[in-house]
Design a protein around this nucleic acid. Structure first.
Lengths: 120, 120
DNA sequence: TGAACAATTAACATATAGGTTAAATGAATG
DNA sequence: CATTCATTTAACCTATATGTTAATTGTTCA
């Protein structure tokens, strides 16, 4: 409960329909109408997906007469992109360290006997 | 249903507990035991989170005697990172194009009358 | 103004997520 | 070999996600 911005961003990106909608919007703004076209789901289902994207601040909607115009919020990917970039880099460094460590200490097979027995 | 790799990656990253586990693992491999420590949730709940991370290929688990050692799969962030990088870049270009377009055409207020009436 | 269209909300069904406690499994050890 | 510890599985609960159809809202225009 009480999801953060990053939570909502990643959750929004976890659905292929929503990623496809975003990909379409990257080519330019569009009406709900047109966004719905490629998908075999009902209009209310599309509205829900757009709500999710909007709550994640990934898109902005504005009324244009009878229609509703959707466009990307280009800043929204920032946080998620930074999280991933940082970790992608950090992880490989971490892996390199491990790799080096393994090369130095060839299978020490330390059996973790460093536990204190519990008195009772 | 039938989630793709990217679906699973983003879904796994959408939970703060799991991101914290990943952040811990970036500092080096750890036993389930230790991963669980910072969290006020039960051991089975941790196991479930680890299952999610493993299904998303973000971590690898291997038995080490009584324990189970967890470590990152550094390649796993690749796909998600690429998706985000690509779109983050593409989006801002898209935004620039829109911006330029708006500067050229100062509020045309085109009312979208290009619809064909449906005969019946 | 009323029919038609765009989009949303309401009400509902079902699946999945994420948590719990209790029981089971597998390894270490006195 | 019986006990303890680490971890998982089983069974269950509740909230949320994602879809549906029917009804509602707001806009256009003949």
């Amino acid at each position: 409960m009480n999801a953060t911005r990053l939570d909502r961003t990643f959750a929004a990106l976890a659905d292929p329909t929503r990623r496809a909608i975003l990909a379409r919007l990257a080519a330019g703004e569009a009406m709900v109408n047109e966004l719905a076209k490629p998908f075999a789901i009902s209009a209310p289902a599309i509205t829900r997906h757009l709500n999710v994207l909007e709550r994640a601040a990934l898109i902005v909607r504005e009324r244009d007469g009878q229609f509703r115009r959707c466009r990307l919020n280009p800043q929204a990917l920032q946080a998620a992109s930074e999280w991933l970039d940082f970790h992608a880099r950090f992880w490989s460094e971490s892996f390199d360290r491990l790799d080096e460590h393994l090369k130095k200490t060839i299978k020490p097979r330390k059996p973790h006997v460093d536990r204190k027995p519990k008195r009772r």
